[in-house]
Every structure is written in C-alpha cells, then in structure tokens.
Amino acid sequence: MRASLIALFLIFTAAAHAFEAPRSMATGTSGLLTRALGRMCHGFDLASDTLPCNPAFIAFKREGTLRANLFFGNNVSYTKEASDLLNERADEDTIRTLFGKQDRSEFETNLEAGYWGETWGVSVSPLRVNYGTTFRNPSLPEISLFASQEESLRGQIGTYLGNDLFIGLQLRALHRKFIAKQFFLTDALANEGTGFFEPENQNVLYVEPGLLYAPEDSDWNPKAYMSLMNAGIASRASPAFPSRPQFHLGTSVAADIGLGTWGLGVDVAWDNGMETDLEPVTVGSYYEFGILRLLAHVNERSNGLGFQVSSGFFNLGLASQSTTFNDGWGEKVTDRRLYLLLGAEI
C-alpha cells in the first residue's frame, strides 16, 4: 500500500519540467572541426566546415570556395522519430522506438552549404537536429529528453585593419523548435505521445565578433585571437537556452614540417556557466599532408580525435569525441560519440 502511494505520488507530482540544454547542442554549429578540435577551432585557419569558427579568419584573402556538408552522428537512424516528436507527429510507436531501450542516446545531424570568399562568406543550414536522452530508475523509468531542430542563416564579413590585425563579424539568425523535458515513460505512453510533447519555438539573432593578430614574417605563423560567441537576442527567453555569451582568447602556431603543415594552439574560454560545466582551457592540434588531415583536442571534460580525407571536391571525415555533461538531474555523465562528415567543395 505504502509503495503504491509513493509510486502514485511520484507519477502525479514529479511529472515534467524543463532544464538547460546540453552545451554542445545549445552553442554554435555542428561540424567536423567543432567535434575534433573542440573550441580550438577558433584558433586555426582551416578550410573544413562551411565557414570559419572565428569570423576574423574570413578577412584573409583567398580564392572563393563553395561547400556543401552533411554532418551526422552515428545514431542518425532516429532522426525521423526525433523530427516527428518535434513536429507533433509522434505516436506510441515513436515513443517506443525512441525510449524503449532505456539507454542513454545522443545524435546530431547538420546539413549546410556555404560560400567562403575573399573577406565575406554566407552559409545556410536548412536542417540541424540535436537529440539527447538520459535515463534513471529502471523500475520506473524517468527520462531527461532534449531535442531541437534549427534552421539558420550565417553571414560573415571581415577586413584587414593594418599592423597584422584582422577583424571579423558574424551575424547568425536561427529559428529553433525544441523540447527540453523530464518525464516518466509511463506518462508518455499513457498519452501515446499525443500532446505530451509540446515543442517550443524561438527565434534568435546572434552577433559574434572576432579579432585576430597574425604577423606574416615568421615561419611559425603565430596567431593570437579573441572572439565572442553566442551573444544574441532571442524572441523569447527559455531556461533551456539561457543567455550564455562565450568569450574566447587564444593563440596558435602553424608551420610546414615534413610533407605537410602542423598546427598547435591553446584556447581559453569562459561564460557565466563555467563554474558548473565549462572547462576553460583547451589544447588542440592538427597535421595535414596530401589528402589527409588529422585533428585532436583535449581539455578536462572533453577530448576528441578525427581525420578528414579530401580529394579536392569531395571530402569525408570521421571524429570521435568524449564529453562530460549534466544529465538533467545534477549528475555528470561522460559519453563518447562518433560523428561523420560527407562534403563537396568547389
């Protein structure tokens, strides 16, 4: 009797509440560089994703390049179910497919095309899907669910200021549809998915500047940079996406060694959530020669390793990243995921 009362209490009172989205899903864009290099992608002038992480690099004079990338994690088969959930098409089958295994899962998918030109660039992403779940209490499964679908448009412009200084600015407009919820599996099944998951909508305009110092008279090509990411104005505030502008300060070097180029850098980042889940210092490195680029990064909560193979038009890559994040109940969880990239470039 007592156990039944406790169970009923849990069901009717603990129901659902919102929580903050995992940081990797709430910030920036999805791409091979951001997974393999982590925050160190702000310090290298690497042509991989459609536009540079640090908009100051757009100010470098270069030949215009058009890119189209499909980036996805290895649980991509659940994208349809996640999309059904976000677009209020979920039914009992959707619930069972997504949550039936009661196993922590996470994936993301990003489709993006962009033009990276001389001092300006633009990219469009008609589809970026992020999804993550954690479970607890197998006897009465409670689920922490985060799912989002974004469409975004980015524009970057940069210029040379003189004295080896470059400045850039990124404007990023996105529309986000998301669900951030904690609930009991029994509640979701009882509702057969109908009306239980009500996605929220949010429009955000980000203004993200970058500054770069890159003296040209050294074989080691040293660089020092500052950038500000995720500084934006949202159409409505949401606890799942709190305002968290993230400052970056870093330095890097890159030199011709052997048959290729080796780069090494350090990035220091901070925002107003750093005391809980952001490690400030990231060290990243890459080596590229011929058709191959090897990438890696490490900090206390995350590490990643990846490679990219490029034929000139067609490129593909694979990255493995381990991250420690909040499971929604205040517990830290460490996960390693695999991400893949297929891209075209002209």
Partner: peptide, 8 residues
C-alpha cells in the same frame, strides 16, 4: 607527389 603517396 610525395605527400599524396604518403597520406594515400
């Protein structure tokens, strides 16, 4: 040439 052979 050599970098393509080695990386390949």
């Amino acid at each position: 040439g050599w970098s393509y052979i080695a990386s390949g």
